[in-house]
Design a protein around this nucleic acid. Sequence first.
DNA 1: TGGACTAATGACCATGTGGTCAATATATAG
DNA 2: CTATATATTGACCACATGGTCATTAGTCCA
Lengths: 224, 224
Amino acid sequence: MHDADEGPAKPKRKRLDPQRREEEIVEGAVLYFSEVGFDGSMRDLAARLGISHALLFRYFPTKDLLIDRVYDQIYLARWNPSWDTMLEDRSLNFPERLIRFYSDYLRAVDRPEWVRTFVYGGLAGVNINQRYLKLVRRKVILPVALELERLVDAGVSAETPSDEAVELSWGLHGEIFYLAIRRWVYGIKVTADIDGFVALTVAKFLKGAPGALKGIAGARGRKA
Amino acid sequence: MHDADEGPAKPKRKRLDPQRREEEIVEGAVLYFSEVGFDGSMRDLAARLGISHALLFRYFPTKDLLIDRVYDQIYLARWNPSWDTMLEDRSLNFPERLIRFYSDYLRAVDRPEWVRTFVYGGLAGVNINQRYLKLVRRKVILPVALELERLVDAGVSAETPSDEAVELSWGLHGEIFYLAIRRWVYGIKVTADIDGFVALTVAKFLKGAPGALKGIAGARGRKA
DNA sequence: TGGACTAATGACCATGTGGTCAATATATAG
DNA sequence: CTATATATTGACCACATGGTCATTAGTCCA
């Protein structure tokens, strides 16, 4: 008998109940595709999970389905619920809310997996991006735009901000997110001082946006 | 010889001198990869060029080499030389220069091939991105940052702007480029009014950035 | 006209991919 | 302990890919 149980635990085959197995697969897939990008292969992923790649196809009939699931996991599940209210909490002044939110948000988002898979998915046309950006629009862009309008005219009661205000709000968002893109997509060196960066950017926004908006609202084409 | 150069039929095999052939390959590759992304295959490209894919490998021993060349072609060769001076032309006031440059630049850059291949290449780690961004830094970011400092303190003679000014300048750039990213990478609907967008963003920048910079400089004490 | 030089090709290779399926092994019920 | 249901597998398919190389055929010169 030359068997002798393999010391370092070598379970030939683990039989898990489907639910548990699925969780393991999704979890592993998130890690794997985050690192490798979506060109990663199902076989590699399976090897990493210690299962056969055929098993993956039992749980996710196509690679795309798995990827969709990974996106859900990364982007929707990681949205911090407290952000929802953070921006609308009138007990804090607007600048403070902006700084807190964006410091927090940028810190959450400024990671290679997040940024790279997000952008990667955008290029690949995965629909999750658009879904996520709708979320951002609803929970961040519009509230900020609305608040911006109030800054210009305290009396506004409109529910929907003007296009210009929305554009300016997207601008702030893009500017901040672009820091992460520069870092993780283009690989160039950027400041490590997130708080300082956010504070500066928000300050610029608050000093510039209301005036720009007012200029537009007042008479088109006014120049500095 | 029943020639008629623009062969309406099927030229079995064209024998070009290597220089000409190489040009054709590069030109075709730019178009092809722009459309398809860098997952496009050498065979497809060859078919499109009407040559065998083996021939591609005669001119570019590996696919990566071809891609490098494509990048050169797209990003370096398309840099509009007039941009170099446009920003530094003191005969125009600064706001006007900014608006002209960025309207022009955004218009040049806001195309699917440009944005997508650029971002694609960033993710893939193609070094051309970093090269290109160095160019942007030298010819756009730094001049703008410098001018921004002059706005705050007309007396500055420094050759190198402060980190904050540079960051603000990158911010403007990112904000503007992010429009194209939203459009072509995330596929969301954005304003079609480029001039309006640039004018608004630049106005916001000019109204906000000097103040933000002054705030920093003040809080920190004097700067040389 | 006939070489000769060398663009250009087709056939081929090794490898990797997403995806399928009949066979197998394991946790659990009886 | 045995039977059963099914989670899991290995072997396999069709196809695409990057890359190689001996062979073929344009074109220019003597």
